[in-house]
Amino acid sequence: MSRRTRRWSEAMLTVSGPLVLLATWEWLSRTARIDPTFWPPPSSLWETFVSLIREGGLLGDVRVTLVRILGGFLLGAVPGVALGLAMGLFWPVRVLLMPIATAVYAVPKIAILPLVVIVFGLGESSKLAIVAISIFFLVVLNTMAGVQAIDPSYRDVARNLGANPLELFLTVALPGSLPAIFTGLRLALGFTLIVIVGTEFITPGDGVGSLIWESWQRLAIKPMFIGLVVTGLLGWLLTVLLDVVERWALPWQARE
């Protein structure tokens, strides 16, 4: 298969999956094989969507959630990468922090929300904090593993050709651990979405999560579905964005 045909087929398959799902849903709902009260046909959601944008402040909710995701992601990922590199490079740092990192990593993050609220209050900062904290250790552990997995012969080559510690870091440790860092960031991005929607459930106000939760409590099924779809789209969009960044940062990786 040529590259072009392959690309085209990929695009077709990507679109057809969701389309088939929506079509099936539409048909089942219209023929009342599933209860249209709880499973309204997707076509009927369009109206709700438009009115939510016009009067319901949907765009505002999306913006708020997006800011929380991106802000929390950066706040957690940047220090996470830094600490992960330090733990990978220096064994005392690693030995010192490893027990804490693995233990905290295992705790379901939503469970520490009360603590976060005690520290950061009910406002915006606690939402950024919970996202940042929940991905921090994930990024740390992936980054550290990435540094440790670098073939020692690369370090030898650099030393043999006269690299000082800074050059060793910049030309070997950093590029060598980037693939693992991105694996961590990809996982982390998924987590940010889970955690922020969960948090918005519990602390209602604004954001896509509250839209879903409040609609559900009013038994307003259609807005609830809009909230779900928007969440899915957000996740998809952010993943694509990260893909683009990764391709730019790792031009040297073998890809199929």
Partner: peptide
């Protein structure tokens, strides 16, 4: 300068960058 046994060419540099590394 040493030519190492096994894998030693930096995968993250192009061929030219690898040769020019030192």
């Amino acid at each position: 300068a040493m030519v190492f046994q096994g894998r030693s060419v930096f995968p993250w540099l192009t061929v030219r960058q690898n040769v020019a590394y030192g």
